[in-house]
Design a protein around this nucleic acid. Structure first.
Lengths: 159, 159
DNA sequence: CGACACTAGATTGTGCACAATCGAAATGTC
DNA sequence: GACATTTCGATTGTGCACAATCTAGTGTCG
């Protein structure tokens, strides 16, 4: 309050940046959780959480493309997650009989992740998941796609 | 593999929906974490995590607008969080001396959250946070705004 | 008044995200 | 061949998100 006497109407200026900024990171935060919440009941029928579902998607795609079965590191690169997150998650998937975890023979540091028969079979039931979610979505598919493409720019770019 | 004999080229059809779907929820997931990661070092100077920063933003805005100080329920509605998340988070903010938590006299079920002097003062330092982040962002501000507006549509709509 | 439903917040338990650290295995260098 | 460095995954500890449950305070209606 002072300098040039008089234009400052508010003792604590509005600070639009703190607002705008709030709303981008916050919108991202909320939207992500709302989408996960929409997935939850559908994925519950498969006995999967959303992060587990993402891991399974990678494994199913990998298997379909006949790629070498992935190591934990390769999964981590694809999903942008580290071993501190993946290790317990993969152990739970193993506990449910959906994957196996076996050390590489030539390099014992590496751990290969492979679908079991049950894990591969689960893909058929997962086929319904995106269909159900798109049906529930009040947002046109075209917008979802454009949104996805905009979001992709955040991967690795920002930091 | 059968009926109508012959068009199926792939024993496991590509299932573009499982891919597309993957990429929207996944892009949301990754983008959110990357943004939080970009905030982390900046917020660390204030001793705040990103969710704590969001709570403080609401409290600062509330104070500036001279609104009644919020209850836990009001904070939860604004941030789309429940007491299971907010209670421990608010206790940590209280432990750091940034807020106080006091029961309403007329209805002892309600808990008012109020900024301490230190909590209010922190706002000055937080002023730099969005500036720093926007400077780091390789994405034009206009795109950030349009992205924010698209993301807003997910709030409450989907489920 | 007393039985009832309702509300706000706290608690408990599970799971994810991530920084920091560790140990073992592999690789590189002299 | 001995030793430093790097790599991979596991472990530990903190914090967030959320479902389910609990407790206490409030309101209502007979």
């Amino acid at each position: 309050m002072a300098q040039h006497a008089g234009v400052t109407l508010d003792p604590q200026p509005t600070d639009a940046l703190l607002e705008l900024d709030n709303q981008l990171c916050f919108a991202l935060h909320v939207a992500g959780r709302q989408v996960v919440k929409a997935y939850r009941p559908v994925l519950a029928e498969l006995g999967l959480t959303h992060p587990q579902y993402l891991v399974m998607l990678v494994l199913w795609a990998w298997a379909r493309e006949r790629k070498e079965r992935p190591t934990v590191r390769a999964l981590g690169e694809r999903l942008v997650l580290d071993s501190g997150t993946l290790t317990p998650l993969l152990k739970r998937l193993q506990g449910r009989g959906l994957i196996t975890r076996t050390r590489a023979r030539d390099d014992e540091r590496e751990l290969f992740v492979r679908l079991t028969r049950a894990g591969a079979a689960l893909r058929k039931r997962a086929h319904e998941v995106p269909i159900t979610l798109l049906q529930q979505s009040p947002i046109p598919v075209g917008e979802l796609i454009s949104l996805r493409d905009q979001l992709r720019r955040f991967r690795g770019n920002w930091c």
